[in-house]
């Protein structure tokens, strides 16, 4: 193994140039002022952006919860289907992902507009028009639509490995469908659930494209704020970097909590 480790060197160089160096720059900006002197000012300024941060965390959490609610049953059904049906469902799930992310989100704009397709159809049967675009609901919809596959895939991949004989063993021991679900399927799928939550929550919290396109600039998320601080009319790299850092730390903390939960389950038997 040891002598093959040079094979990883291209990747190491890549990581150094595109991860370590930029991260160092973010840190440097976050702890300096415009003249380059060390300061805590920028970090302390995050108080003024607290509402955006809070909104982002809440909407990210709602989107993640919805993805779990929609994705979990689907992952279960997929994992128990015949091989052919599994392939078809996987295809249907991945197909929209092959289209550009921006295009997909644009199409939601035209669907949700006040005189868009949905209101048009509803109008014909005498309903609406409903105000849907530029709301928090539209942003959450965009997050769920774009990130749902990242919830389904990890859950599906752990569920698919649950052998049929475990279902039979549970039934044999007197468990009905509900009990089999609660006592066998759910605990065994937990690692997938945790990966899925992380994979949906992280991009949801930090998105700015979805909130700009479906939120119409009136429902700014922390991602939008950071973007403006870098490329807006009055750029301030130092505060932008500080906010990025805070967001990153918050995400790391939430992932660590999740991971802890997962490990606890894994070794639960040993600790008891």
């Amino acid at each position: 193994m040891k002598k093959d480790s040079w094979l990883a060197s291209p990747f190491m160089v890549w990581v150094l140039i595109f991860t370590v160096v930029p991260l160092g720059m973010v840190c440097w900006y976050a702890f300096t002022d415009a003249s380059g002197a060390f300061t805590f000012e920028n970090i302390l300024k995050i108080g003024t952006y607290w509402d955006y941060l809070k909104d982002s965390l809440i909407m990210g959490a709602v989107a993640t919860a919805l993805c779990l609610l929609l994705g979990y049953p689907l992952a279960y059904i997929m994992s128990r289907a015949s091989w052919g049906a599994q392939q078809t469902m996987m295809m249907l799930l991945m197909l929209p992902q092959w289209m550009n992310f921006l295009l997909r989100t644009y199409s939601w704009m035209t669907l949700l507009e006040n005189n868009g397709l949905i209101n048009n159809i509803l109008g014909r049967i005498g309903l609406g028009p409903f105000h849907m675009i530029n709301t928090k609901g539209a942003i959450i919809l965009g997050m769920v639509y774009n990130f749902l596959p990242y919830m389904i895939l990890p859950i599906y991949s752990v569920m698919e490995k649950i052998h049929d004989s475990l279902f039979e063993a549970a039934r044999d021991l007197g468990a009905n469908r509900f009990n089999t679900m609660r006592r066998v399927v759910f605990p065994l799928s937990l690692p997938g659930v945790i990966t899925g939550i992380t994979m949906v929550f992280v991009p949801s919290v930090s998105t700015f494209v979805i909130s700009q396109m479906l939120g119409g600039g009136r429902n700014m998320l922390i991602g939008d704020v950071i973007e403006r601080l870098f490329v807006g009319a009055a750029p301030n790299y130092n505060v932008g970097a500080a906010l990025s850092l805070v967001l990153m730390v918050l995400i790391l903390i939430s992932m660590a909590v999740m991971k802890k939960f997962d490990d606890g389950e894994e070794t639960g038997g040993l600790m008891m």
């Binding site: 052998h163 475990l166 063993a169 066998v184 065994l188």
Partner: peptide
């Protein structure tokens, strides 16, 4: 069962 089918968790 043939392959025991113990619950791994």
């Amino acid at each position: 069962f043939q392959r025991y089918a113990l619950f791994p968790h």
